[in-house]
Design a protein around this nucleic acid. Structure first.
Lengths: 261, 261
DNA sequence: TAATGTGAAGTTTTTCACAGCG
DNA sequence: CGCTGTGAAAAACTTCACATTA
Protein backbone atom coordinates (compact mmCIF):
# COMPACT_ATOMS: atom_id res chain seq x y z
CA UNK A 1 0.00 0.00 0.00
CA UNK A 2 3.00 2.27 0.09
CA UNK A 3 2.88 5.08 -2.41
CA UNK A 4 5.65 6.65 -4.44
CA UNK A 5 9.13 5.21 -5.02
CA UNK A 6 8.92 3.77 -8.47
CA UNK A 7 12.60 3.22 -8.96
CA UNK A 8 14.36 0.03 -7.90
CA UNK A 9 17.97 0.08 -6.79
CA UNK A 10 20.05 -0.63 -9.87
CA UNK A 11 21.90 -3.54 -8.34
CA UNK A 12 18.75 -5.32 -7.11
CA UNK A 13 21.06 -6.94 -4.56
CA UNK A 14 19.38 -5.61 -1.46
CA UNK A 15 15.88 -5.89 -2.92
CA UNK A 16 13.87 -7.46 -0.14
CA UNK A 17 10.35 -8.20 -1.38
CA UNK A 18 7.71 -5.96 0.10
CA UNK A 19 5.72 -8.97 1.28
CA UNK A 20 8.75 -10.12 3.21
CA UNK A 21 9.31 -6.71 4.77
CA UNK A 22 5.72 -6.74 5.95
CA UNK A 23 6.32 -10.00 7.78
CA UNK A 24 9.61 -9.12 9.43
CA UNK A 25 7.87 -7.29 12.29
CA UNK A 26 5.83 -10.42 12.91
CA UNK A 27 8.92 -12.56 13.18
CA UNK A 28 10.57 -9.98 15.35
CA UNK A 29 7.70 -10.00 17.77
CA UNK A 30 7.72 -13.78 18.05
CA UNK A 31 11.49 -13.78 18.48
CA UNK A 32 11.32 -11.13 21.17
CA UNK A 33 8.87 -13.26 23.10
CA UNK A 34 11.24 -16.23 22.81
CA UNK A 35 14.14 -14.07 23.85
CA UNK A 36 12.29 -12.97 26.98
CA UNK A 37 11.77 -16.61 27.83
CA UNK A 38 15.50 -17.11 27.29
CA UNK A 39 14.97 -19.62 24.52
CA UNK A 40 18.37 -19.87 22.79
CA UNK A 41 17.45 -21.31 19.40
CA UNK A 42 14.35 -21.94 17.37
CA UNK A 43 13.57 -23.93 14.24
CA UNK A 44 11.81 -22.45 11.23
CA UNK A 45 8.89 -24.70 12.04
CA UNK A 46 8.48 -23.44 15.59
CA UNK A 47 9.04 -19.82 14.75
CA UNK A 48 6.66 -19.99 11.82
CA UNK A 49 3.97 -21.41 14.07
CA UNK A 50 4.51 -18.60 16.57
CA UNK A 51 4.29 -16.00 13.83
CA UNK A 52 1.32 -17.60 12.15
CA UNK A 53 2.91 -18.33 8.77
CA UNK A 54 4.18 -21.49 7.14
CA UNK A 55 7.76 -22.52 7.57
CA UNK A 56 8.76 -22.53 3.91
CA UNK A 57 7.70 -18.94 3.64
CA UNK A 58 9.63 -18.00 6.72
CA UNK A 59 12.80 -19.66 5.47
CA UNK A 60 12.44 -17.98 2.11
CA UNK A 61 11.94 -14.66 3.84
CA UNK A 62 15.06 -15.13 5.94
CA UNK A 63 17.03 -16.16 2.88
CA UNK A 64 16.66 -12.61 1.59
CA UNK A 65 18.40 -11.32 4.68
CA UNK A 66 21.26 -13.80 4.50
CA UNK A 67 22.13 -17.20 5.89
CA UNK A 68 21.40 -16.67 9.52
CA UNK A 69 20.47 -20.21 10.51
CA UNK A 70 22.38 -23.37 11.30
CA UNK A 71 21.39 -26.51 9.42
CA UNK A 72 20.22 -29.24 11.72
CA UNK A 73 19.75 -26.77 14.55
CA UNK A 74 17.72 -23.72 13.68
CA UNK A 75 18.16 -20.02 14.33
CA UNK A 76 19.92 -18.31 17.21
CA UNK A 77 17.19 -16.19 18.75
CA UNK A 78 19.29 -13.24 19.95
CA UNK A 79 21.22 -13.11 16.74
CA UNK A 80 18.09 -13.06 14.62
CA UNK A 81 16.47 -10.42 16.80
CA UNK A 82 19.44 -8.22 16.16
CA UNK A 83 19.60 -8.87 12.43
CA UNK A 84 15.92 -8.24 11.85
CA UNK A 85 15.96 -5.16 14.05
CA UNK A 86 18.83 -3.80 12.06
CA UNK A 87 17.16 -4.63 8.77
CA UNK A 88 14.02 -2.83 9.87
CA UNK A 89 16.01 0.16 11.05
CA UNK A 90 15.08 -0.33 14.67
CA UNK A 91 18.59 -0.05 16.05
CA UNK A 92 18.01 3.64 15.92
CA UNK A 93 15.19 5.54 17.57
CA UNK A 94 12.56 7.16 15.37
CA UNK A 95 10.89 10.25 16.74
CA UNK A 96 7.23 10.20 15.74
CA UNK A 97 4.70 13.02 15.72
CA UNK A 98 1.01 12.37 16.13
CA UNK A 99 -1.28 14.95 14.57
CA UNK A 100 -4.89 15.07 15.70
CA UNK A 101 -5.29 14.37 19.40
CA UNK A 102 -8.85 13.18 19.59
CA UNK A 103 -9.94 9.86 21.00
CA UNK A 104 -7.79 7.87 18.66
CA UNK A 105 -4.75 10.12 18.77
CA UNK A 106 -4.81 10.05 22.54
CA UNK A 107 -5.22 6.29 22.55
CA UNK A 108 -2.18 5.91 20.32
CA UNK A 109 -0.16 8.32 22.45
CA UNK A 110 -0.97 6.15 25.43
CA UNK A 111 -0.22 2.93 23.62
CA UNK A 112 2.72 1.40 25.42
CA UNK A 113 4.17 -1.10 22.96
CA UNK A 114 4.61 1.91 20.76
CA UNK A 115 7.60 3.47 22.46
CA UNK A 116 8.97 0.07 23.38
CA UNK A 117 10.79 -0.75 20.18
CA UNK A 118 12.42 1.83 18.02
CA UNK A 119 9.83 4.55 18.25
CA UNK A 120 9.34 7.52 20.51
CA UNK A 121 6.41 9.90 20.60
CA UNK A 122 8.25 13.16 20.10
CA UNK A 123 5.28 15.45 19.71
CA UNK A 124 1.50 15.65 19.87
CA UNK A 125 -0.09 18.24 17.63
CA UNK A 126 -3.67 19.42 17.45
CA UNK A 127 -5.57 22.21 15.73
CA UNK A 128 -7.69 23.02 18.77
CA UNK A 129 -6.12 25.99 20.62
CA UNK A 130 -7.90 24.88 23.79
CA UNK A 131 -5.85 21.69 23.79
CA UNK A 132 -2.49 23.40 23.59
CA UNK A 133 -0.52 22.71 26.73
CA UNK A 134 -2.80 19.94 27.92
CA UNK A 135 -0.70 16.90 28.72
CA UNK A 136 -1.72 13.66 27.02
CA UNK A 137 0.23 10.58 28.00
CA UNK A 138 2.62 12.90 29.76
CA UNK A 139 3.31 15.01 26.69
CA UNK A 140 2.01 18.54 26.23
CA UNK A 141 -0.10 18.98 23.13
CA UNK A 142 1.19 21.68 20.79
CA UNK A 143 -0.71 23.75 18.31
CA UNK A 144 -0.78 23.12 14.58
CA UNK A 145 0.59 26.58 13.92
CA UNK A 146 3.96 25.39 15.13
CA UNK A 147 3.88 22.17 13.15
CA UNK A 148 6.75 23.10 10.92
CA UNK A 149 9.03 24.06 13.77
CA UNK A 150 8.09 21.03 15.87
CA UNK A 151 8.88 18.64 13.05
CA UNK A 152 12.27 20.11 12.26
CA UNK A 153 13.36 20.67 15.83
CA UNK A 154 12.63 17.08 16.71
CA UNK A 155 13.97 15.61 13.50
CA UNK A 156 10.67 13.85 12.89
CA UNK A 157 10.55 11.85 9.67
CA UNK A 158 7.53 9.69 10.53
CA UNK A 159 4.15 11.29 11.06
CA UNK A 160 0.92 9.74 12.26
CA UNK A 161 -2.32 11.34 11.13
CA UNK A 162 -5.35 10.86 13.36
CA UNK A 163 -7.31 13.92 12.34
CA UNK A 164 -10.83 13.96 10.95
CA UNK A 165 -10.84 13.04 7.26
CA UNK A 166 -11.42 16.60 6.12
CA UNK A 167 -8.17 17.80 7.63
CA UNK A 168 -5.98 14.87 6.67
CA UNK A 169 -4.72 15.98 3.27
CA UNK A 170 -3.87 19.43 4.51
CA UNK A 171 -2.03 18.08 7.53
CA UNK A 172 -0.27 15.63 5.26
CA UNK A 173 0.89 18.43 2.97
CA UNK A 174 2.21 20.39 5.90
CA UNK A 175 4.01 17.39 7.33
CA UNK A 176 5.63 16.67 4.00
CA UNK A 177 6.60 20.30 3.55
CA UNK A 178 8.20 20.19 6.97
CA UNK A 179 10.31 17.20 6.02
CA UNK A 180 8.28 14.13 6.96
CA UNK A 181 8.82 11.29 4.47
CA UNK A 182 6.74 8.51 6.01
CA UNK A 183 3.13 8.80 7.02
CA UNK A 184 0.83 6.46 8.85
CA UNK A 185 -2.70 7.53 8.05
CA UNK A 186 -5.63 6.62 10.26
CA UNK A 187 -8.01 9.03 8.58
CA UNK A 188 -10.34 7.41 6.06
CA UNK A 189 -8.96 9.38 3.14
CA UNK A 190 -6.70 8.72 0.21
CA UNK A 191 -3.67 10.92 0.70
CA UNK A 192 -1.70 12.15 -2.24
CA UNK A 193 1.96 12.71 -1.63
CA UNK A 194 4.98 13.49 -3.79
CA UNK A 195 7.33 10.75 -4.90
CA UNK A 196 9.66 9.59 -2.22
CA UNK A 197 7.09 9.81 0.54
CA UNK A 198 5.62 6.56 1.84
CA UNK A 199 2.09 6.34 3.08
CA UNK A 200 0.53 3.43 4.89
CA UNK A 201 -3.04 3.44 6.02
CA UNK A 202 -4.93 1.86 8.84
CA UNK A 203 -8.62 1.79 8.26
CA UNK A 204 -11.12 0.21 10.58
CA UNK A 205 -13.97 0.59 8.20
CA UNK A 206 -12.19 -1.10 5.32
CA UNK A 207 -11.21 -4.04 7.47
CA UNK A 208 -14.77 -4.48 8.68
CA UNK A 209 -16.06 -4.37 5.14
CA UNK A 210 -13.65 -7.07 4.08
CA UNK A 211 -14.83 -9.19 6.98
CA UNK A 212 -18.43 -8.52 6.06
CA UNK A 213 -17.77 -9.76 2.54
CA UNK A 214 -16.51 -13.10 3.81
CA UNK A 215 -19.17 -13.25 6.47
CA UNK A 216 -21.81 -12.89 3.81
CA UNK A 217 -20.24 -15.72 1.84
CA UNK A 218 -20.39 -17.96 4.86
CA UNK A 219 -24.08 -17.22 5.30
CA UNK A 220 -24.62 -17.97 1.64
CA UNK A 221 -22.80 -21.27 1.81
CA UNK A 222 -24.75 -22.28 4.86
CA UNK A 223 -27.98 -21.59 3.06
CA UNK A 224 -26.71 -23.54 0.07
CA UNK A 225 -25.81 -26.45 2.31
CA UNK A 226 -29.25 -26.29 3.87
CA UNK A 227 -30.79 -27.20 0.55
CA UNK A 228 -30.61 -24.15 -1.65
CA UNK A 229 -33.06 -21.68 -0.20
CA UNK A 230 -33.38 -18.22 -1.70
CA UNK A 231 -30.21 -16.16 -1.88
CA UNK A 232 -29.46 -14.54 1.44
CA UNK A 233 -30.23 -10.90 1.18
CA UNK A 234 -31.34 -9.49 4.50
CA UNK A 235 -33.47 -6.41 4.93
CA UNK A 236 -32.54 -4.57 1.78
CA UNK A 237 -32.87 -0.84 1.53
CA UNK A 238 -34.74 0.04 -1.62
CA UNK A 239 -32.02 0.08 -4.28
CA UNK A 240 -31.60 3.05 -6.56
CA UNK A 241 -33.04 2.67 -10.03
CA UNK A 242 -30.56 2.55 -12.86
CA UNK A 243 -30.42 5.89 -14.69
CA UNK A 244 -29.83 4.60 -18.22
CA UNK A 245 -31.05 1.54 -20.08
CA UNK A 246 -31.27 -1.97 -18.64
CA UNK A 247 -29.55 -5.11 -19.89
CA UNK A 248 -26.66 -5.38 -17.43
CA UNK A 249 -25.06 -8.72 -16.97
CA UNK A 250 -24.07 -8.91 -13.31
CA UNK A 251 -23.26 -12.53 -12.47
CA UNK A 252 -26.36 -12.63 -10.24
CA UNK A 253 -28.43 -10.35 -8.06
CA UNK A 254 -28.77 -7.51 -10.48
CA UNK A 255 -30.70 -4.55 -9.23
CA UNK A 256 -34.03 -5.94 -8.14
CA UNK A 257 -36.06 -3.14 -9.72
CA UNK A 258 -34.47 -3.87 -13.10
CA UNK A 259 -34.11 -7.63 -12.81
CA UNK A 260 -35.41 -9.23 -16.02
CA UNK A 261 -36.39 -12.63 -14.59
CA UNK B 1 -4.23 -11.97 6.12
CA UNK B 2 -7.46 -13.83 6.61
CA UNK B 3 -7.11 -17.22 8.19
CA UNK B 4 -8.95 -20.44 7.52
CA UNK B 5 -11.14 -21.24 4.51
CA UNK B 6 -8.95 -23.41 2.38
CA UNK B 7 -11.63 -24.70 0.07
CA UNK B 8 -12.63 -22.87 -3.09
CA UNK B 9 -16.19 -22.97 -4.37
CA UNK B 10 -16.37 -25.79 -6.88
CA UNK B 11 -17.76 -23.65 -9.62
CA UNK B 12 -15.17 -20.86 -9.28
CA UNK B 13 -17.80 -18.63 -10.82
CA UNK B 14 -18.13 -16.19 -7.97
CA UNK B 15 -14.42 -16.27 -7.08
CA UNK B 16 -13.53 -12.64 -6.59
CA UNK B 17 -9.78 -12.33 -5.94
CA UNK B 18 -8.93 -11.37 -2.39
CA UNK B 19 -6.89 -8.42 -3.63
CA UNK B 20 -9.96 -7.13 -5.38
CA UNK B 21 -12.17 -7.59 -2.33
CA UNK B 22 -9.70 -5.54 -0.31
CA UNK B 23 -10.05 -2.67 -2.76
CA UNK B 24 -13.83 -2.63 -3.06
CA UNK B 25 -14.24 -0.60 0.16
CA UNK B 26 -11.88 1.96 -1.30
CA UNK B 27 -13.92 2.29 -4.46
CA UNK B 28 -17.08 2.42 -2.42
CA UNK B 29 -15.78 5.29 -0.35
CA UNK B 30 -14.78 7.27 -3.42
CA UNK B 31 -18.12 6.56 -5.05
CA UNK B 32 -20.02 7.61 -1.96
CA UNK B 33 -18.22 10.93 -2.00
CA UNK B 34 -19.16 11.40 -5.66
CA UNK B 35 -22.72 10.41 -4.90
CA UNK B 36 -22.93 13.04 -2.18
CA UNK B 37 -21.78 15.61 -4.68
CA UNK B 38 -24.51 14.32 -7.02
CA UNK B 39 -22.03 13.34 -9.69
CA UNK B 40 -23.99 11.04 -12.02
CA UNK B 41 -21.25 9.13 -13.80
CA UNK B 42 -17.53 8.63 -13.49
CA UNK B 43 -14.84 7.17 -15.72
CA UNK B 44 -12.45 4.47 -14.59
CA UNK B 45 -9.67 7.02 -14.83
CA UNK B 46 -11.36 9.51 -12.52
CA UNK B 47 -12.55 6.97 -10.03
CA UNK B 48 -9.17 5.29 -9.95
CA UNK B 49 -7.53 8.60 -9.18
CA UNK B 50 -9.98 9.23 -6.37
CA UNK B 51 -9.33 5.80 -4.93
CA UNK B 52 -5.59 5.99 -5.36
CA UNK B 53 -5.16 3.04 -7.72
CA UNK B 54 -4.50 2.79 -11.44
CA UNK B 55 -7.36 2.59 -13.84
CA UNK B 56 -6.51 -0.73 -15.42
CA UNK B 57 -6.59 -2.36 -12.03
CA UNK B 58 -9.91 -0.77 -11.25
CA UNK B 59 -11.45 -1.94 -14.49
CA UNK B 60 -10.14 -5.43 -13.94
CA UNK B 61 -11.55 -5.40 -10.42
CA UNK B 62 -14.96 -4.33 -11.64
CA UNK B 63 -14.89 -6.95 -14.34
CA UNK B 64 -15.07 -9.60 -11.62
CA UNK B 65 -18.33 -8.12 -10.43
CA UNK B 66 -19.90 -7.91 -13.87
CA UNK B 67 -20.21 -5.41 -16.70
CA UNK B 68 -21.42 -2.43 -14.81
CA UNK B 69 -20.05 0.34 -17.00
CA UNK B 70 -21.04 1.95 -20.26
CA UNK B 71 -18.37 2.12 -22.97
CA UNK B 72 -17.58 5.61 -24.01
CA UNK B 73 -19.26 6.96 -20.89
CA UNK B 74 -18.11 5.41 -17.66
CA UNK B 75 -19.90 4.10 -14.61
CA UNK B 76 -23.21 5.18 -13.14
CA UNK B 77 -22.29 6.28 -9.64
CA UNK B 78 -25.47 5.28 -7.80
CA UNK B 79 -25.66 1.99 -9.57
CA UNK B 80 -22.09 1.09 -8.71
CA UNK B 81 -22.53 2.16 -5.09
CA UNK B 82 -25.40 -0.26 -4.84
CA UNK B 83 -23.63 -3.12 -6.58
CA UNK B 84 -20.48 -2.84 -4.53
CA UNK B 85 -22.45 -2.45 -1.31
CA UNK B 86 -24.34 -5.58 -2.11
CA UNK B 87 -21.21 -7.46 -3.04
CA UNK B 88 -19.63 -6.49 0.26
CA UNK B 89 -22.70 -7.45 2.19
CA UNK B 90 -23.45 -3.93 3.34
CA UNK B 91 -27.10 -3.94 2.36
CA UNK B 92 -27.65 -5.60 5.67
CA UNK B 93 -26.60 -4.29 9.06
CA UNK B 94 -23.86 -6.11 10.93
CA UNK B 95 -24.01 -5.93 14.71
CA UNK B 96 -20.48 -5.68 16.06
CA UNK B 97 -19.18 -6.26 19.57
CA UNK B 98 -16.07 -4.54 20.88
CA UNK B 99 -14.22 -6.37 23.61
CA UNK B 100 -11.74 -4.42 25.72
CA UNK B 101 -12.92 -0.90 26.43
CA UNK B 102 -9.65 0.87 27.15
CA UNK B 103 -8.41 3.92 25.32
CA UNK B 104 -8.55 2.26 21.95
CA UNK B 105 -11.81 0.41 22.45
CA UNK B 106 -13.47 3.61 23.57
CA UNK B 107 -12.01 5.49 20.62
CA UNK B 108 -13.43 2.90 18.24
CA UNK B 109 -16.80 2.96 19.95
CA UNK B 110 -16.86 6.71 19.43
CA UNK B 111 -15.72 6.47 15.84
CA UNK B 112 -18.56 7.81 13.78
CA UNK B 113 -17.92 6.54 10.28
CA UNK B 114 -18.16 3.15 11.86
CA UNK B 115 -21.88 2.99 12.32
CA UNK B 116 -22.47 4.94 9.13
CA UNK B 117 -22.31 2.11 6.64
CA UNK B 118 -23.40 -1.38 7.38
CA UNK B 119 -22.14 -1.71 10.91
CA UNK B 120 -23.64 -1.07 14.30
CA UNK B 121 -21.92 -1.24 17.67
CA UNK B 122 -24.21 -3.72 19.36
CA UNK B 123 -22.21 -4.24 22.55
CA UNK B 124 -19.18 -3.10 24.51
CA UNK B 125 -17.59 -5.70 26.72
CA UNK B 126 -14.86 -5.36 29.32
CA UNK B 127 -13.32 -7.54 31.99
CA UNK B 128 -13.18 -4.76 34.58
CA UNK B 129 -16.23 -5.06 36.87
CA UNK B 130 -15.85 -1.38 37.74
CA UNK B 131 -16.63 -0.48 34.15
CA UNK B 132 -19.86 -2.43 33.96
CA UNK B 133 -22.75 -0.07 33.41
CA UNK B 134 -20.55 2.88 32.51
CA UNK B 135 -21.78 4.36 29.26
CA UNK B 136 -19.19 4.75 26.51
CA UNK B 137 -20.36 6.45 23.34
CA UNK B 138 -23.84 6.13 24.71
CA UNK B 139 -23.66 2.38 25.21
CA UNK B 140 -23.40 0.73 28.61
CA UNK B 141 -20.33 -1.45 29.01
CA UNK B 142 -21.13 -5.04 29.94
CA UNK B 143 -19.03 -7.53 31.80
CA UNK B 144 -17.07 -10.33 30.17
CA UNK B 145 -18.94 -12.91 32.24
CA UNK B 146 -21.94 -12.33 30.06
CA UNK B 147 -20.04 -12.43 26.79
CA UNK B 148 -21.68 -15.57 25.57
CA UNK B 149 -25.18 -14.33 26.19
CA UNK B 150 -24.46 -10.88 24.74
CA UNK B 151 -23.12 -12.34 21.51
CA UNK B 152 -26.02 -14.70 20.94
CA UNK B 153 -28.75 -12.30 22.00
CA UNK B 154 -27.48 -9.66 19.60
CA UNK B 155 -26.67 -12.06 16.79
CA UNK B 156 -23.13 -10.77 16.63
CA UNK B 157 -20.94 -12.48 14.08
CA UNK B 158 -18.18 -9.88 13.92
CA UNK B 159 -16.08 -9.18 16.99
CA UNK B 160 -13.45 -6.51 17.54
CA UNK B 161 -10.69 -7.26 20.04
CA UNK B 162 -9.05 -4.28 21.71
CA UNK B 163 -7.83 -5.98 24.86
CA UNK B 164 -4.25 -6.13 26.10
CA UNK B 165 -2.28 -8.78 24.19
CA UNK B 166 -2.32 -11.21 27.09
CA UNK B 167 -6.09 -11.48 27.05
CA UNK B 168 -6.61 -11.53 23.30
CA UNK B 169 -6.44 -15.27 22.62
CA UNK B 170 -8.75 -16.10 25.48
CA UNK B 171 -11.25 -13.48 24.40
CA UNK B 172 -10.98 -14.75 20.87
CA UNK B 173 -11.72 -18.30 21.97
CA UNK B 174 -14.76 -17.17 23.88
CA UNK B 175 -16.02 -15.10 20.97
CA UNK B 176 -15.64 -18.02 18.62
CA UNK B 177 -17.32 -20.37 21.06
CA UNK B 178 -20.21 -17.92 21.28
CA UNK B 179 -20.65 -17.95 17.51
CA UNK B 180 -18.48 -15.14 16.18
CA UNK B 181 -16.94 -16.06 12.83
CA UNK B 182 -15.08 -12.87 11.92
CA UNK B 183 -12.61 -11.09 14.14
CA UNK B 184 -10.82 -7.81 13.81
CA UNK B 185 -7.83 -7.94 16.10
CA UNK B 186 -6.12 -4.80 17.37
CA UNK B 187 -4.07 -6.64 19.96
CA UNK B 188 -0.47 -7.30 18.92
CA UNK B 189 -0.87 -11.05 19.05
CA UNK B 190 -1.20 -13.85 16.56
CA UNK B 191 -4.61 -15.36 17.12
CA UNK B 192 -5.29 -18.96 16.36
CA UNK B 193 -8.79 -19.79 15.32
CA UNK B 194 -10.57 -22.84 13.90
CA UNK B 195 -11.19 -23.18 10.22
CA UNK B 196 -14.03 -21.07 8.94
CA UNK B 197 -13.25 -18.13 11.19
CA UNK B 198 -11.66 -15.10 9.54
CA UNK B 199 -9.20 -12.92 11.36
CA UNK B 200 -7.87 -9.60 10.22
CA UNK B 201 -5.41 -7.63 12.22
CA UNK B 202 -4.63 -3.98 12.63
CA UNK B 203 -1.26 -3.35 14.13
CA UNK B 204 0.18 0.08 14.67
CA UNK B 205 3.57 -1.22 15.60
CA UNK B 206 3.91 -3.35 12.48
CA UNK B 207 2.95 -0.46 10.24
CA UNK B 208 5.50 1.79 11.88
CA UNK B 209 8.20 -0.82 11.49
CA UNK B 210 7.47 -1.16 7.80
CA UNK B 211 7.72 2.60 7.46
CA UNK B 212 10.98 2.59 9.39
CA UNK B 213 12.38 0.04 6.98
CA UNK B 214 11.73 2.28 4.00
CA UNK B 215 12.79 5.35 5.91
CA UNK B 216 16.11 3.75 6.59
CA UNK B 217 16.51 2.96 2.92
CA UNK B 218 15.95 6.56 2.04
CA UNK B 219 18.63 7.67 4.47
CA UNK B 220 20.98 5.10 2.96
CA UNK B 221 20.29 6.23 -0.59
CA UNK B 222 20.83 9.84 0.38
CA UNK B 223 24.21 8.97 1.85
CA UNK B 224 25.06 7.00 -1.28
CA UNK B 225 24.07 9.94 -3.45
CA UNK B 226 26.25 12.18 -1.29
CA UNK B 227 29.30 10.32 -2.51
CA UNK B 228 29.28 6.97 -0.80
CA UNK B 229 30.10 7.70 2.81
CA UNK B 230 30.01 4.90 5.36
CA UNK B 231 26.79 2.94 5.64
CA UNK B 232 24.24 4.81 7.68
CA UNK B 233 23.91 3.10 11.00
CA UNK B 234 22.84 5.59 13.62
CA UNK B 235 23.54 5.27 17.33
CA UNK B 236 23.63 1.49 17.60
CA UNK B 237 22.94 -0.26 20.84
CA UNK B 238 25.67 -2.77 21.58
CA UNK B 239 24.58 -5.84 19.64
CA UNK B 240 24.47 -9.27 21.25
CA UNK B 241 27.42 -11.51 20.54
CA UNK B 242 26.69 -14.57 18.45
CA UNK B 243 26.56 -17.67 20.63
CA UNK B 244 28.16 -20.15 18.25
CA UNK B 245 30.94 -19.89 15.68
CA UNK B 246 31.44 -17.01 13.24
CA UNK B 247 31.41 -17.17 9.43
CA UNK B 248 27.93 -15.88 8.66
CA UNK B 249 27.28 -14.46 5.27
CA UNK B 250 24.81 -11.63 5.79
CA UNK B 251 24.77 -9.48 2.65
CA UNK B 252 26.35 -6.65 4.62
CA UNK B 253 26.45 -5.26 8.13
CA UNK B 254 27.08 -8.46 9.97
CA UNK B 255 27.18 -8.17 13.70
CA UNK B 256 29.81 -5.53 14.44
CA UNK B 257 31.44 -7.48 17.27
CA UNK B 258 32.02 -10.41 14.93
CA UNK B 259 32.65 -8.48 11.72
CA UNK B 260 35.75 -9.90 10.01
CA UNK B 261 36.82 -6.78 8.12
C1' DT C 1 20.42 -36.77 10.90
C1' DA C 2 17.68 -32.87 11.31
C1' DA C 3 16.73 -28.61 9.58
C1' DT C 4 18.35 -24.80 6.56
C1' DG C 5 18.58 -22.59 2.06
C1' DT C 6 16.95 -22.45 -2.54
C1' DG C 7 16.03 -23.63 -7.50
C1' DA C 8 11.90 -24.64 -9.76
C1' DA C 9 7.00 -25.00 -10.14
C1' DG C 10 2.67 -23.10 -9.13
C1' DT C 11 -0.47 -19.42 -7.92
C1' DT C 12 -2.04 -14.76 -7.51
C1' DT C 13 -1.85 -10.10 -8.74
C1' DT C 14 -0.65 -6.38 -11.72
C1' DT C 15 0.04 -4.31 -16.01
C1' DC C 16 -0.29 -3.96 -20.92
C1' DA C 17 -2.59 -3.05 -24.96
C1' DC C 18 -6.29 -3.24 -27.81
C1' DA C 19 -10.73 -5.28 -29.56
C1' DG C 20 -15.35 -4.02 -29.09
C1' DC C 21 -19.19 -1.35 -27.98
C1' DG C 22 -22.22 2.64 -27.02
C1' DC D 1 -14.53 8.80 -30.82
C1' DG D 2 -13.93 7.59 -25.93
C1' DC D 3 -13.94 4.41 -22.58
C1' DT D 4 -14.95 -0.19 -20.97
C1' DG D 5 -13.86 -5.02 -20.63
C1' DT D 6 -10.50 -8.51 -21.11
C1' DG D 7 -7.16 -11.79 -23.11
C1' DA D 8 -2.33 -12.19 -22.73
C1' DA D 9 2.19 -11.00 -20.82
C1' DA D 10 4.75 -9.70 -16.87
C1' DA D 11 5.72 -9.41 -12.16
C1' DA D 12 5.23 -10.71 -7.46
C1' DC D 13 4.49 -14.01 -4.22
C1' DT D 14 3.90 -18.70 -2.32
C1' DT D 15 4.72 -23.44 -2.07
C1' DC D 16 7.16 -27.59 -3.14
C1' DA D 17 10.72 -30.67 -2.59
C1' DC D 18 15.27 -31.77 -2.00
C1' DA D 19 20.33 -31.03 -2.18
C1' DT D 20 23.26 -29.40 1.27
C1' DT D 21 25.52 -28.92 5.38
C1' DA D 22 26.56 -28.30 10.33
Amino acid sequence: MATGRTHRPATRSRGIPEATVARLPLYLRALTALSERSVPTVSSEELAAAAGVNSAKLRKDFSYLGSYGTRGVGYDVEYLVYQISRELGLTQDWPVAIVGIGNLGAALANYGGFASRGFRVAALIDADPAMAGTPVAGIAVQHTDDLDRIISENGVSIGVITTPPGAAQQVCDRLVAAGVTSILNFAPTVLSVPDGVDVRKVDLSIELQILAFHEQRKAGEEAAADGRAGAVDGPDAAPPVRATSAGRKGPDGDMPAVMPA
